[in-house]
Design a protein around this nucleic acid. Structure first.
Length: 223
DNA sequence: CCAGACGTTGTT
DNA sequence: GTCTGG
DNA sequence: CCAGACGTTGTT
DNA sequence: GTCTGG
């Protein structure tokens, strides 16, 4: 799955990798947790021909029909195998797809002595993109809220010893298809596969990062 | 018809 | 909003 | 995802 | 055990 990740790349690098004009200024983040703001890349809202934009939204999808915010916490992830059909996700799957930039993500290995966190990233150490969905929600009093979720799939051989699920990572050649309004559901589903393991690497990190309050650079430092 | 659910993870 | 269960 | 709280009363 | 906060 994907319940914690890092995004430390400078805004200018994110802008050039994804081809967006401007990325909001933000400090490097090494321990991003559900309910926190996350950066997403999407077609400009209601003017898709105007290109891509990068904005911050809350991590945890809130379907437009939700009565209150309580549902969002549980929807930090969506299973790729069922996301096209599940009531909470299918509408976003059709019309609200996004990319979620990251430098890598964390998974926990259950060991006799407790949960051991690992950091997993591209061997190239380049920026990567999770396949995501976003939604626009309005509170009963009219207050708007934008949210997003990260799609998961089976772990590949590199991740499997640590955990049996991992986020869907899209390759740059697939960004346009994932975001495109014209892409058929069948072709979208074909993108929701584990990234080949030979492109990735992993290493152990400090257990101190398991507490989401610890946000320093040491979270993703090898131990 | 109305009422109620709508999710993932890990663990058992 | 839309589907399922009663 | 993991960590941490989980309660009421009365008093300050 | 289950929910909330980060």
């Amino acid at each position: 799955m994907c319940g914690r990740f890092a995004l430390k790349a400078p805004p200018a690098d994110i802008a050039s990798h994804f081809g967006v004009d401007a990325v909001p200024e933000a400090a490097p983040r090494y321990n991003i947790a559900p309910t926190q703001p996350i950066l997403i890349v999407r077609h400009r809202w209601q003017q898709p021909e105007a290109g891509l934009e990068a904005v911050h939204v809350k991590w945890g999808l809130l379907p437009s029909w939700a009565k209150d915010e309580s549902m969002a916490a549980k929807l930090a992830n969506a299973r790729g195998e069922t996301v096209a059909e599940k009531p909470a996700f299918r509408s976003a799957f059709r019309r609200m797809r996004c990319l979620i930039p990251a430098d890598g993500f964390y998974e926990w290995e259950a060991t006799p002595s407790g949960k051991q966190p690992w950091f997993i990233r591209l061997k190239s150490q380049e920026l990567l993109a999770f396949a995501g969905l976003w939604e626009h929600w309005q509170a009963p009093d009219g207050t708007p809220l934008e949210t997003a979720t990260i799609i998961t799939t089976d772990a590949n051989e590199l991740v499997r010893p640590v955990h049996d699920r991992m986020p869907v990572i899209l390759q740059p050649a697939d960004y346009a298809a994932w975001l495109g309004a014209q892409t058929k559901a069948e072709d979208l589903k074909a993108l929701l596969k584990p990234l080949p393991e030979d492109l990735m690497e992993r290493y152990r990190v400090s257990r101190r990062m398991s507490n989401a309050r610890n946000e320093g650079e040491e979270c993703m430092a090898p131990v």
